[in-house]
């Protein structure tokens, strides 16, 4: 019995509870599919309403997203110190009110509600582009796509983790497209000082989530995003 339990504890996947369309996003050349998240409130309708809002916001980001800012570090003899960052996303919030989404599927996972949405009325769910989790360790190459991934710790409210990981993935994609690196490092026998500054100023559009992954053992989740070339 002990060995059986041991075997089962290793064989159960971290991601078993999530629907497939959440982990491996449906991809179509004709339309985009977006997942909205919300906490599970007392009234499910409230959760869906909020998830729908998040979805509309994501559609606006999908259309056009400016990622601008800087990230600063200082080298010291004991390692690099993170000074802070000002990287922000800017998108057209005016567009949100005109976006009409249709919900294709919903799921309740632990304490959050997920909705799969698209624009238009086609309710068929196409096949995903990604069908495994090898992208977590090694970045894949897909012809016709620029891809990047972002991570976030697992927070108390898991939907915050996914939102943060998605945002970080978009920032990663922006820094992939262009990243300006400036650094000054001064070293002598007794001290190491200086500063390094990375800056990004990129406009992206049509960035969509391709896959998601959660690792409860190490306490983080990952999101892979892609932008068609």
């Amino acid at each position: 019995m002990f060995f059986l339990l041991l075997f089962l504890s290793y064989s159960i996947d971290d991601t078993t509870v999530y629907p497939r369309w959440f982990l491996q996003m449906p991809i179509s050349s004709k339309r985009v599919y977006i997942v909205g998240y919300a906490p599970l409130y007392k009234y499910l309708s409230s959760s869906i309403k909020e998830a729908r809002k998040v979805t509309k916001r994501k559609f606006a980001i999908y259309r056009r997203d400016s990622i601008v800012g800087e990230r600063a570090f200082a080298p010291t003899p004991i390692g690099k110190i993170y000074l802070g960052e000002t990287i922000m996303e800017f998108f057209d919030t005016n567009a949100i009110k005109d976006i009409k989404v249709s919900i294709i599927d919903t799921a309740v996972v632990q304490d959050m509600v997920l909705i799969l949405s698209t624009l238009g009325r086609d309710r068929k769910i196409p096949s995903p582009l990604i069908t495994d989790t090898s992208w977590v360790d090694e970045m894949p190459d897909f012809s016709g796509w620029f891809v990047a991934k972002g991570e976030a710790p697992i927070y108390e409210y898991e939907h915050h983790s996914w939102l943060a990981a998605e945002r970080n993935a978009r920032v990663s994609l922006a820094t992939f497209l262009e990243y300006h690196e400036k650094a000054l490092k001064k070293l002598n026998n007794k001290s190491l000082s200086g500063v390094s500054l990375g800056s990004v100023n990129v406009v992206v559009s049509r960035v969509q989530v391709l896959a998601r992954y959660i690792n409860r053992k190490n306490g983080y989740c990952s999101v892979l995003v892609g932008m068609r070339k």
């Binding site: 690196e181 400036k182 070293l187 002598n188 983080y220």
Partner: peptide, 22 residues
């Protein structure tokens, strides 16, 4: 006493994480 000063000013296009392990 060796003193060195290193200045970097570079725009990287297409830099990305190839492999990672957390």
């Amino acid at each position: 006493t060796q003193v060195s000063k290193n200045v970097v000013d570079q725009t990287l296009i297409g830099s990305r994480v190839n492999k990672s392990k957390a």
